[in-house]
Write a protein that binds this DNA or RNA. Structure first.
Length: 168
DNA sequence: CGTGTTTGACCAGCGC
DNA sequence: GCGCTGGTCAAACACG
């Protein structure tokens, strides 16, 4: 798996070098997808090539609203994971600061912020309306501090993740 | 008592 | 300009 991507988001998860992979292979049974959203930042587009790009885009096509992005637009990384629980324990401490019902989705979207001092990483968690077994977690920003608890759990989750390449 | 969640209000961007 | 929608705030609340 593209561990370097995880590294980008979870600096503490190191190890395996990038394996070029997302293209073409397993869209079959994968339940894991990584989306990089950088709408104006096309320089990152190469990253998003092999990834599913379903989260934000679909929303945009619908309502096309984003707030405040005129100024600061941070890249967002969305994971699609197949999970019974919404909360993926990635080792960081999150504080929920909002929940909103989204259009065309019976499930609400939850907004979390990293509680570490000085760390302003945010994430959103929502389920796919078409498949309630799939949880989409969108990270915004990158952690610049170590994980606060054991990553065993999350790494275990990672080992079970596969590329979800439904749109390629 | 410290920390995190819930929940309604508020705000801003966009389409009509 | 108005209304809809997504995103955030903050007070009240729950829980260890």
């Amino acid at each position: 798996m593209e561990n370097y991507q995880y590294q980008a988001i979870f600096p503490c998860l190191s190890s395996t070098p990038p394996a070029s992979q997302f293209q073409g292979d397993d869209r079959s049974n994968g339940f894991f997808g990584l989306v990089t959203n950088s709408e104006l930042d096309n320089h990152v587009s190469h990253e998003s090539k092999g990834f599913v790009n379903g989260t934000e885009t679909s929303e945009m096509s619908k309502s096309g609203k984003r707030k405040g992005e005129k100024k600061v637009r941070k890249p967002r990384y969305a994971f699609q994971t197949r999970s019974q629980v919404d909360i993926l324990d990635d080792g960081y401490r999150w504080r929920k600061y909002g929940q909103k019902a989204v259009k065309n989705n019976k499930f609400p979207r939850s907004y979390y912020r990293c509680t570490h001092q000085g760390c302003h990483v945010k994430k959103q968690v929502q389920r796919l309306p078409k498949d309630e077994g799939v949880v989409v977690t969108t990270y915004e920003g990158m952690h610049s501090h170590p994980i606060e608890k054991s990553t065993d759990n999350f790494e275990h989750i990672l080992t079970q993740m596969q590329i979800y390449n439904a749109f390629n």
